[in-house]
């Protein structure tokens, strides 16, 4: 299958960190030759450690935070009552705004009858874009101490919405709001899990999420050993397709821990990830493939 002719978007998820999302995402992107890799794990993005991207362009990501003009504020408290997140308080004839609590909905500005609130921009992180061969590498980085990386994920996803290339999205771990934002528009979800009881628990979280979003999906069991394991049982019981098993293998471990890309270092893994990519594209349905 010619993988350069698809504009499919594939998300790689897992219920916890360290299961192999980045391993799968980086190797799929690389084996595809021409692709976009987006690291949405904004609290600890590490795909760039493998790609070491060149020609990096950086752009700040900002959110809008209200500020008050004390001359205009008459203390009516409409904004305080409106804010569902309680980011505002009115104490001793003065309006207090808690930036970290604000979700940038802009509602306080709409309800203020005195026009006393105005928007200011606050930097919460950045997006870096670079290249590795014919792969565009996008990395979202959330500043330490910021409450939510969702604006960064939104920017990453929006910027790559209409690109005519295979796009691999390395998700944040878990199944919280930020992951929902990440998978909203994808064509297929890969759920990476470890073959343990803990692996089942974590897999179940993302399994419930992708079902809620009605996304086609398949499971990759990472660190796989040829024996019965709870994840396999879980998949059989719930009729979930296991699309790949990545072996528990010292060779792969070594390549990985040196920050190298397995498909470039090992014929065996080149074959494994090539097959996987073909399978995923086929699984996701041919309707999104241009000139199948």
């Amino acid at each position: 299958m010619d993988t350069t002719k698809t504009n499919m978007k594939i998300a790689v998820l897992s219920g916890k960190g360290g299961t192999g999302k980045t391993l799968v995402s980086v190797n799929l992107s690389t084996v595809a030759k021409e692709s976009i890799y987006i690291d949405c794990d904004v609290e600890e993005p590490n795909g760039h450690l493998y790609f070491k991207p060149k020609n990096i362009q950086k752009e700040d990501v900002t959110v809008k935070i209200p500020k008050v003009d004390n001359e205009k504020c008459n203390g009516c408290r409409k904004c305080v009552e409106f804010c569902k997140f309680n980011a505002l308080a009115y104490i001793k004839n003065k309006l207090f705004i808690f930036d970290e609590i604000c979700h940038s909905c802009g509602g306080c500005m709409l309800v203020c009858p005195e026009d006393a609130l105005f928007e200011t921009e606050k930097v919460i992180g950045k997006v870096e874009k670079g290249y590795y061969n014919n792969i565009s590498i996008y990395t979202g980085i959330l500043n330490i101490g910021e409450a939510s990386g969702i604006p960064i994920v939104k920017k990453l996803i929006d910027e790559n919405k209409n690109k005519d290339k295979l796009t691999i999205i390395d998700c944040p771990p878990g199944s919280a709001c930020i992951v929902m934002e990440t998978i909203r528009d994808v064509d297929y979800c890969i759920l990476v899990a470890e073959p343990t009881i803990f692996g089942v628990h974590n897999l179940n979280m993302v399994y419930e999420l992708v079902r809620l979003f009605n996304k086609p999906f398949g499971v990759i069991i990472n660190k796989y050993l040829e024996e019965e394991n709870p994840v396999k049982k879980f998949c059989v019981k719930n009729n979930i397709k296991i699309i790949e098993k990545i072996p528990f293998d010292t060779e792969l471990g070594k390549i990985n821990s040196n920050g190298e890309i397995a498909v470039e270092k090992s014929g065996k893994y080149n074959q494994l990830f090539s097959n996987l990519l073909d399978k995923v594209i086929k699984e996701a349905g041919n309707e999104t493939t241009v000139n199948p």
Binding site: N86, A87, A89, I101
Partner: peptide, 18 residues
Amino acid sequence: FAASDVGGAGIKAAQIIV
């Protein structure tokens, strides 16, 4: 009234006290 709020309960509760 802050007890069941999603977030910022401390701020709202403090407002009530004030």
